[in-house]
Write a protein that binds this DNA or RNA. Structure first.
Lengths: 341, 341
DNA sequence: GATGAGAGTGCAATCGTTTGCTTAAAAATA
DNA sequence: TATTTTTAAGCAAACGATTGCACTCTCATC
């Protein structure tokens, strides 16, 4: 790797001169001849400034970090994609880290990224703890939470109206005559899950629905876990007539369980999923889905972060709430008589 | 951010002593009392070594870079996920960059990452050019290509047997009686596409199939492009009785076109897709899919990279070929009479 | 009672850039 | 011609961590 010194030597000038020529475009007192010589040398040696030295000296790396729990989940992959594009537009690099829902790993990433001189951080936190984020806040390090946040801990965040959308989905099912509706989700320590569960319970209360505890299941986020939990629910003595599933991978797992059990959607069971996959319209039964404006979420998180990174003084925190949208499918139908029996 | 100096000051020792105490665990000549004092100070100040300074001094960053064309494509997202996990196991950080199939962007990423002191690089190249990779090779910078490689340019690579798998898929269709088979894919500048096309053409020759040029389409990689290209093909005066589609997103786009056109799979048209999505079994018609051992590909690419990064002397290049697998679905069927009419 | 061996620390250079300050020559002004 | 200004380029410190070398002690050994 060619260094400034190498270029300087080749051009027969001092390294500082090379630096100046390469950095400052206009009104630099330099002879055309020398500039020419330096440029030629830089190209000749395929010189690229060492970013770590630069970051060290400048205290700025033009890089931000993104920590997400799972990149093979299209939900986070799409968010990552949009953040990456915004970064690129703004001249930033993006460092993507995957916590795999492991709190320990997330903490390590935060430490590692900050000590790399990352300028800011966007995090979809695991939410088993947040002491590391409190430290970040204390150091006045700019960061934005995405999709998940802490009620009791004030930070920047871009989230969606989980509770309302779960309630709406329930209402939709209730209007079709369903009174025994199961709720399938990941860990309830997570903000989105808690909120959706709250929306579910709210609907259960308002419409006085069946409250068998077995109808609520929080097994985990994966395809496999969704599959197993759904099988369990379907084999209840009195299985539900409808299912509200929270999460991309879980929904597909549930789908597998339903297909394997031989049930037809929506004739035998109705299904609404919190899912943002492009394939929902082409599933065995085109899925009624609650979708997020993922690109918008990513873009707004980055814009908010940028604002805080560029701020001279401490800005007040923002909590941006985006609206989900129910994508109508064909996976929900009025309850039929045999279900009740 | 606390520095070594801050810790040293608090512990009343020289920075170098702090560094030694924090780095070298065993047999360091240091009094227990001093060590104690230093440790306490480090914790008190929440000290984390500055990685850019460290990387600068050590010439090693314990970070590798991954450049992929599209992260919202599960194919690359899964590869990224597995590489990330391997990295983590080996104590490396992963920096993920998304080229969005833009050669310019890829070149920038390569320059930027290498000048960040990244220890190695895994790339799924855009393949419009490779001069930047030649430079990398010249500088003896360790890198591994994944999924796509260059026939005429020797490098490390982990790829799959694209040609054979396309041929096998075609053979499968031919045995069902299909003779008019369309091939839908992304840009033919890309290795995988070229190879799959070669497999397709080979089958066309061996079995003397219909060679109407309109049956071959290379519109692009996206869902939208797959949709449009497929519509075009379906509206041919003599539409094909079967479709071989190359790529995740394109396959779903084609699916949309088929569904919208009102055709039934496999009664009206057979479909085989190169796709690695977990949802293929639950589509309108459970899809016959050619799948890749994605986790394995990622793991092997990382292992190969690690080997080259740790090598004292120049190693010979490896080209690892993994086998694809045809996942049987229900989207292919024997040709029926009305198709031929 | 020198000499030598270790134990316990500090010093200073280094990695590659950047930038305020200085110097030196040339040009402009008095 | 003497002085100031402008132009052009070099010097050196700094960012934070690491490490070979050197230094000062304290013991034990010959």
């Amino acid at each position: 790797m060619a260094t400034l010194k190498d270029v300087a030597f080749l051009a027969q000038v001092h390294p500082s001169t090379v630096s100046r020529v390469l950095r400052c475009s206009e009104n630099l007192p330099i002879s055309a001849e020398t500039r020419q010589r330096i440029m030629a040398a830089a190209i000749e040696l395929d010189y690229h400034p060492d970013q770590r030295a630069r970051a060290l000296r400048l205290g700025k790396s033009n890089t931000i970090g993104l920590i997400i729990p799972d990149i093979s989940n299209p939900f986070f992959a799409d968010i990552a994609q949009s953040i990456e594009q915004e970064c690129h537009k703004a001249g930033y690099m993006l460092m993507v880290c995957v916590s795999n829902e492991d709190q320990e790993k997330e903490i390590n990433f935060v430490n590692n990224l900050t000590s790399r001189g990352i300028d800011g951080l966007i995090i979809a936190p695991v939410q088993d703890s947040y002491a590391h984020l409190v430290r970040l806040k204390k150091k006045n390090y700019p960061f934005v939470l995405i999709d998940r946040c802490f009620e009791e801990f004030e930070t920047n965040a871009v989230i969606s109206d989980n509770e309302a959308s779960a309630f709406d989905a329930m209402e939709h099912l209730v209007k079709l005559g369903h009174r025994r509706i199961a709720f399938l989700s990941g860990r309830p320590t997570i903000y989105t899950i808690r909120k959706r569960l709250a929306g579910y319970l709210h609907a259960v209360n308002v419409y006085d629905l069946d409250r068998t505890p077995e109808l609520i299941s929080n097994g985990g986020f994966t395809f496999e876990q969704g599959y197993k939990e759904c099988l369990k629910i379907l084999s209840l003595p009195e299985p539900p007539s409808a299912l509200l599933v929270s999460g991309n991978q879980i929904t597909f797992g549930a789908l597998r369980a339903i297909v394997e059990t031989g049930l037809k959607i929506p004739e035998d069971i109705s299904l609404i999923g919190f899912t943002d996959s492009i394939v929902t319209p082409f599933l065995v039964s085109p899925l009624t889905a609650i979708t997020h404006p993922l690109r918008d979420m990513g873009a707004r998180a980055f814009a908010l972060l940028l604002q805080h990174m560029n701020a001279k003084e401490r800005l007040p925190f923002s909590r941006i709430v985006v609206e989900t949208k129910m994508l109508p499918g064909a996976s929900t139908a009025p309850i039929n008589e045999k279900m009740i029996a």
